[in-house]
Structures are given as C-alpha cells and as structure tokens.
C-alpha cells in the first residue's frame, strides 16, 4: 500500500510528518524520498547508505557511417536535444527525455541507445525503516523520471510512505499518481490555505482518497479548518505549534524521539488514515493487499 505525503507549499512539515509516521509504526516500512531536488529525509535518520544505484535514461548514439544526414530525428525531437549542421546530428543529452522517438524514425538504423546518468537512488536502513532517497544530479531537469525510478524500487510487500516534492507540478503529480492515500500537510495561514487548495485540486483530479494535516496549529487562524469543513475534507491531525518541535527539527531530530509525548499524535494519525481509507476506498489502509 502506498501513502503519499504532499503539500502545495514547501516548508509545511511534509518530511517531518513522513519520517515521524514511519518511526512510530511497529512494523517494517519503506520511506521513499521523492523530493529529488531537495531530498532531506535522510538528515533525520541516522543510518549510513547501504547502497547507491545510478539512474540512467537511454539517449541516442548515432552511427556516423550509417547516418545519411536526413534529419528526420532532428525534426522529430520535441525537446531540441538533437541539432543538425549538415553532418550526423549532434546530441545534447541534458535535454533528452529518453523517449526513443529518434530511433523509431531513423530510416537507416543508424541510432542505438546508450545510458546517460540523471541521478541516483540511495538506500539506507534505520531500524525498521528502509529509506530510499532519489537525488537528481545538479543540472538535470528530469525530476519526474527520477521519481518514477524511486517508485519502481518500492518493495510491494510492505507499506510505503512517499515524501512528495512540494507544489502541484509534474514531479509532485508523478509521486501522487497510483498512491492509495494522500496526506496533505498545510499550515493554518493564508499562504497555507491558498496552496492547500491547489493541492486539493490536484488530488481530486487524480481521484485519490485523501485527508489534511494542519501543522503548527495555533499560529494562524481558522480558515483552513473552515475550508476543510465546507469541502467535506477530513482533518486527520492538528499538530500544535511548539517551539520545542522547531528546535528539535533544527537539530535534525525526530519529534517522537525528542518529545515522546507527541508519539500518540502520530499513532492517532495512522488510525485516522486507516479510518478514512476505509470510508473513502472501502478498505483499510494497512489491511490492504499489496498491489
């Protein structure tokens, strides 16, 4: 079963909620860090990397002998990754999306594929938590492709928590697609509400079961709560604003380790996810069979 933790706005506590949720579960669990531009979950778990896997895409390699400079591949490429200057086309692998179209259109069989690195997936084991972190190489733009690579490395036999990138753009949607349940983390502020609405539009578009967590409850106003009530969106948890939480976070500590009194909040969150999953999808979250 796949639980995605997402938010319209950055800095609402998505990673914090994901890591603490994983920690309070008394069973093996996977945590997949899909925030591949800024992967941060590993900063909160003390575990050395056990393996690092290189993630690649297939980019064209043009055989200059066979190429007759017909330019069909250059004209086909939607991403301007190929350029023609009269001879065999030049490749700009950093622009290639790895669609394979150039190979398909080449009439001379002059194109084969070679691997091009876009990032890595690092695995760590911290107690019962298996953390897999995607990290996009600096200068590469294929965040969604790397998100897919992280998700493909999920072991379907245990529960997985996906820490999504913020926002509602491609990489966030790539993370959310196929999830069984989405937890949207927000703050009780006007910015938080504005961005929550965008996140709600997104999960509705994807037809996902979902609920909302209000982090730093008490710092702002009631507009988020009223919005959720009016829209019939379940409020899964309100985590109070507590300077000690911010301090623990600043040191890279887990809330449930530094402040054990908050353990019950996260246990209740699992319960709420279970209940809502049953209500919205007709099956409890954890009892579900792996897909």
């Amino acid at each position: 079963m796949i639980l995605a933790v997402a938010s319209g706005k950055g800095g609402t506590g998505k990673t914090s909620i994901s890591v603490n949720l994983a920690r309070v579960l008394d069973a093996p669990i996977q945590l997949l860090d899909c925030d591949v531009e800024e992967p941060n979950a590993h900063l909160f778990l003390t575990a050395a990397p056990s393996s690092e896997e290189e993630i690649t895409i297939g980019v064209p390699k043009i055989d200059a002998e066979r190429c007759n400079a017909c330019n069909k591949c250059v004209e086909f490429c939607q991403f301007n990754a190929l350029a023609s200057v009269g001879k065999a086309p030049m490749l700009f692998p950093e622009l290639c999306h790895g669609c394979g179209g150039c190979m398909l259109v080449c009439p001379n069989n002059a194109i084969r594929e070679e691997r091009y690195r876009i990032g890595s997936v690092t695995t760590r084991q911290a107690g019962l938590i298996t953390l897999k972190s995607g990290c996009l190489d600096v200068g590469v733009s294929l965040a969604s492709t790397l998100v897919h690579a992280v998700k493909e490395r999920r072991n379907p036999s245990t529960t997985a928590i996906l820490d999504a990138p913020p926002g509602t753009a491609c990489p966030a949607v790539a993370t959310l697609r196929g999830a069984d349940f989405a937890v949207l983390v927000t703050e009780p502020t006007p910015f938080g509400l504005n961005d929550l609405k965008l996140a709600v539009d997104t999960v509705r578009e994807l037809k996902l079961a979902f609920g909302v967590v209000i982090n730093r409850a008490g710092i702002g106003d009631d507009r988020v709560r009223h919005y959720c009530e009016a829209e019939g969106i379940p409020l899964l948890l309100e985590l109070p604003d507590d300077r000690r939480i911010a301090e623990a976070y600043s040191r890279g500590e887990l809330i449930v380790d530094a402040l054990p009194e908050y353990r019950s909040h996260f246990e209740r969150l699992w319960q709420a996810i279970d209940n809502e999953s049953t209500k919205q999808r007709g099956m409890p979250y954890r009892a579900g069979v792996a897909r």
Binding site: F79, N80, A81, A83, S84, V85, G86, F92, L95
Partner: peptide
C-alpha cells in the same frame, strides 16, 4: 521553445 532555443537558433544561423 520549451527548451533548446539556443540550439535551434544556432541551426537557423548556420
């Protein structure tokens, strides 16, 4: 162009 505008422009010049 979503990306690669410079590459396209360079081909135009060539």
């Amino acid at each position: 162009a979503a990306q690669g505008a410079g590459i396209q422009a360079a081909q135009t010049i060539a």
